[in-house]
Amino acid sequence: MPDAGAPQLSTPKGPAPRHVAIIMDGNGRWAAARGLPRAEGHRRGVEAIRRAVRAAGELGIRYLTVFSFSSENWTRPAAEISELMGLLRRFVRNDLADLHANNVRVRIVGEREGLTADIARLLVEAEDLTRGNTGLTLVVAFNYGARQEIVRAAQRAAQAVARGEMAAEDIDLESFAALLDMPDLPDPDLIIRTSGEQRLSNFLLWQSAYSELVFIPTYWPDFDRAALEQAIDEFHRRERRFGGLVAQTGS
Results as ranks from 00 to 15, higher is better:
residue 19 H to T: 00
residue 71 S to W: 08
residue 172 D to C: 09
residue 190 L to V: 00
residue 67 F to W: 11
residue 20 V to D: 11
residue 238 R to H: 03
residue 172 D to S: 08
residue 162 A to P: 05
residue 87 L to W: 12
residue 164 G to Q: 07
residue 79 A to M: 07
residue 179 L to K: 13
residue 23 I to M: 10
residue 233 D to H: 01
residue 185 L to I: 02
residue 121 R to P: 02
residue 227 A to V: 09
residue 158 A to M: 12
residue 10 S to N: 13
residue 10 S to T: 15
residue 244 G to A: 05
residue 226 A to I: 12
residue 2 P to E: 15
residue 137 T to A: 08
residue 187 D to G: 03
residue 209 A to V: 06
residue 202 N to R: 06
residue 136 L to V: 06
residue 154 A to F: 14
residue 23 I to P: 01
residue 129 L to Q: 05
residue 17 P to S: 04
residue 183 P to D: 01
residue 55 A to Y: 08
residue 40 E to R: 08
residue 66 V to H: 06
residue 198 Q to G: 04
residue 105 R to I: 03
residue 206 W to L: 06
residue 203 F to G: 00
residue 211 S to V: 01
residue 33 A to Q: 14
residue 47 E to K: 13
residue 156 R to H: 13
residue 51 R to P: 11
residue 89 R to E: 15
residue 154 A to M: 14
residue 202 N to L: 00
residue 82 S to E: 13
residue 152 R to V: 03
residue 160 A to Q: 14
residue 232 I to R: 02
residue 143 N to F: 06
residue 59 L to P: 07
residue 236 H to F: 02
residue 216 I to G: 04
residue 33 A to M: 10
residue 91 F to T: 12
residue 22 I to C: 01
residue 158 A to H: 09
residue 192 I to Q: 01
residue 1 M to E: 07
residue 192 I to M: 02
residue 8 Q to M: 15
residue 240 R to Y: 07
residue 92 V to C: 05
residue 232 I to Q: 01
residue 152 R to N: 13
residue 46 V to D: 05
residue 182 M to W: 12
residue 212 E to M: 14
residue 230 Q to H: 14
residue 206 W to N: 06
residue 41 G to W: 02
residue 195 S to C: 10
residue 164 G to L: 00
residue 167 A to G: 14
residue 86 G to K: 06
residue 195 S to I: 05
residue 199 R to I: 03
residue 145 G to A: 08
residue 59 L to A: 03
residue 122 L to Y: 06
residue 188 P to W: 03
residue 218 T to R: 03
residue 153 A to Y: 06
residue 25 D to P: 13
residue 67 F to E: 11
residue 92 V to W: 06
residue 233 D to I: 05
residue 242 F to S: 03
residue 61 I to F: 10
residue 87 L to G: 09
residue 148 Q to I: 05
residue 157 A to L: 12
residue 41 G to L: 03
residue 142 F to Q: 05
residue 143 N to G: 04
residue 112 R to S: 02
residue 62 R to E: 15
residue 157 A to V: 13
residue 5 G to I: 11
residue 222 D to W: 01
residue 81 I to Y: 11
residue 96 L to E: 00
residue 203 F to Q: 02
residue 164 G to F: 04
residue 54 R to Q: 13
residue 81 I to H: 10
residue 169 E to N: 12
